[in-house]
């Protein structure tokens, strides 16, 4: 039995220790905002925030997160920071098919948490593990820049 903090609540998973966290989150905790795009750590759709850092949940075995803190889009969307990102993404139409978006939002949070005033290159590097096939990334990069400006003091 592995216990960890999931979106601020202590939970215990009965899954096997070698089970990918992605499956645990989707199947056991019904957090369908965590998307499976490749299951090989190559697309970022399943990204969560693990102990304060972005992590592809398909690449994390449950047994490695005993006592850790996990935040998914379901937990993050209740925050004030999310609201700023939400408005920024909406203002430039950065959401198309939406499949990369939960991971992309959490990547955005991690960029801004580390550096509230990122350069364009820092934003690009910060989302470089989150593939998007719809937007060409322009709108997403722009949205993160807007959030940085609008969210002064939040990050």
């Amino acid at each position: 039995m592995i216990s960890f903090m999931l979106n601020g609540t202590k939970v215990v998973s009965t899954a096997r220790a070698n089970e990918p966290l992605l499956n645990v989150l989707r199947n056991e905790f019904h957090l369908s905002g965590v998307k499976c795009g490749c299951n090989e750590g190559e697309c970022g759709a399943c990204a969560v925030i693990l102990d304060g850092r972005l992590a592809n949940s398909c690449m994390v075995a449950l047994g490695s997160i005993q006592g850790s803190k996990v935040i998914t889009i379901e937990g993050y969307r209740t925050t004030e920071r999310f609201t700023v990102l939400d408005m920024a993404y909406a203002s430039v139409g950065a959401v198309q098919c939406g499949f990369c978006i939960p991971g992309m939002i959490l990547a955005s949070e991690c960029i801004l948490a580390k550096n509230p005033n990122p350069t364009r290159a820092e934003i690009q590097a910060g989302i470089s593990g989150n593939l998007c096939r719809c937007t060409g990334y322009n709108a997403i990069v722009a949205a993160i820049g807007i959030a940085a400006k609008e969210g002064q003091g939040l990050w």
């Binding site: 220790a17 070698n18 090989e40 750590g41 690449m59 994390v60 075995a61 047994g63 490695s64 005993q66």
Partner: peptide
């Protein structure tokens, strides 16, 4: 885990 988890192995016993 990033190399191990690429080759998902349901029978593996890991030492974390």
């Amino acid at each position: 885990g990033t190399d191990l988890m690429k080759k998902a192995n349901g029978n593996a016993t890991y030492l974390f």
